[in-house]
Amino acid sequence: MLSYNTQKKLLIFSFLAIPLALLITFSFYPAVKLIYYSFTSWDGLSNNYPWVGLSNYKSIFTNPGLFGAFGHNFSYLVCGIIQNIIALYFAIILNSKIKAKNFFRSVLFTPYILNAVAIVFIFKFIYLDTGALNLLLQHMGLGSLQQDWIGNDSIVNWSLAFVSMWEYFGFNMVIYLAALQSVPQEMYEAAKIDGANKWKTLIYITIPNIKGIIQINLLLTISGALEAFNIPFIMTNASPPTATFLTNTMNVAFTFGNYGLASAMAVVLLVLVGVVIFIQQKLLGGGRDVV
């Protein structure tokens, strides 16, 4: 038999070869190509890749129509943060002594397992101006709250972001729940002896102990919000009041035949996600690697 040292080398190499090949082929290589395209004015079809230097990047920041779409991503960001707060709240409740725990947990998790396209269709139906939501409000005597959920430009992005929140909060909740269950029970007992109330226990014991998980959940939520695509694309065909930065990117590439500019937009998006996550890490501290 081979020595464990040789085995180790062999194993690391053979176990990582395929996964890393996949990672490089389908993630890094396309990303490098993307960066290359971003310095050209390639139209997406021809064999010409005219080098244009930084001009694509300049036009992103000087064209309010392109960068302005981030205003629509803002709703997804806010709803994403609310989504995490709600998810954590329900996780804490479900982690306490409670009846029908499994039932509630399963119900709240259900939206996440439904097909994403089906969810958008269902909400499209519910948001119709004569749809279920407005009817429900009327029946509840809240007729004054009825809205044109899709037609009103100042509401529509919140309506869409809500769909995202509805779909994903169960996922966050289950992850938080798992983290909560792993906080050592002794810490709570010690706190109880010290006479700490529920609020203090939450702030000083629970939250610090699950910081890593909060970071990961926020990381996923924030990048998801900045890269929102499917919901506006299926629900409103990414009409101007609902266009996000990524739907605009696809439009620039495939309606206006400017793949170079679209690539630059994708690179900007990637950098922006990185920056936001860096800020988030700094704000929430923790410093330790999330992985």
Binding site: D129, D148, G151
Partner: peptide, 12 residues
């Protein structure tokens, strides 16, 4: 659109 001649919920 302004005069309300389009569909009542014309954006959906």
């Amino acid at each position: 659109v302004n005069k309300g001649y389009a569909e009542p919920d014309f954006k959906n």
